[in-house]
Design a protein around this nucleic acid. Sequence first.
DNA 1: AGGCAGGTGGCCA
DNA 2: TGGCCACCTGCC
Length: 289
Amino acid sequence: MLIDPPNQKVLFEDSFTEADLAELLDGGQAFRWNRQKDGSWLGQWSRSICRIERSSDGKAACSLLTENIKDVRNTIRTYFGLDRNWRDLRDQLPWRSDNHLAQCIDTFPSLRILRQPFGETLLCFLCSATKQIVQIKQMCENLARTFGTEIAPGFYALPSWKQLAAVSEEDLRTCGLGFRARYIHATARIIAKNPGCLDEIENLPYPEARRRLMEFPGVGEKVADCVLLFGAGKLEAFPVDVWILRVMKDRYHLDRWSNSQIAHFGRIHFGALAGFAQQFLFSFERRTA
DNA sequence: AGGCAGGTGGCCA
DNA sequence: TGGCCACCTGCC
């Protein structure tokens, strides 16, 4: 049930512009946020429904609209990474010696990395191959409505991997997944055989977690890195997609380099927080495209 | 109206 | 290893 007025609100410390908020919630990290007519954002993860309201001074307030959430404050803190000092992390990026990165950071100063539920992140990014954000969101919504659980009138949670394991590939295709249906189906079957494996992988160190994720069909280097970055808080994960390749070629002048050489350069250049740096580059490039 | 899109896996030199 | 291609479908 929806609660009105909303229960406990959590205030963000940083200020956000409209563009900041749109980039954080709808910029390709998460696929379950929608801007409402009144300008607020409504989003979902697990069995939570969340509203974010931004006042004219840039302060953003977050509230959960679902009952039965034991620890509201903690749920929000985890998802938005409020337990990390992003200002400090941002300062550790090599912006002093990298003018382009500095410009990207200035453009989206309050950008951070979400910490989404691991299994849901895997599902969303299995949908992402050669699709744009709008279409990925549509696929996720279809999956939730068709195979997920209704948690409030009109709101559906994404199906669990257990729920997905009971669905045929053919039925998955009704969600408009295309060839991605095969990946999701096969991955669900593998997870069903070893139900604890996702929890296990989430808690592994980055290199091993990445290797294990890539054993799932449909999970290559890029998807694995997205899942670990946005769903496991591993900031060293550096997803290399077409946007990042373009950035590295155009802005870092790596003209004659192969894709894998470019990816390698990025990981070395940006270091232990490479994924955080990646998000600034990605957002900036998308905005100026 | 038709090409193209936040990739992956398989096959061939 | 490195490059090329099929794979589905809906949206601009």
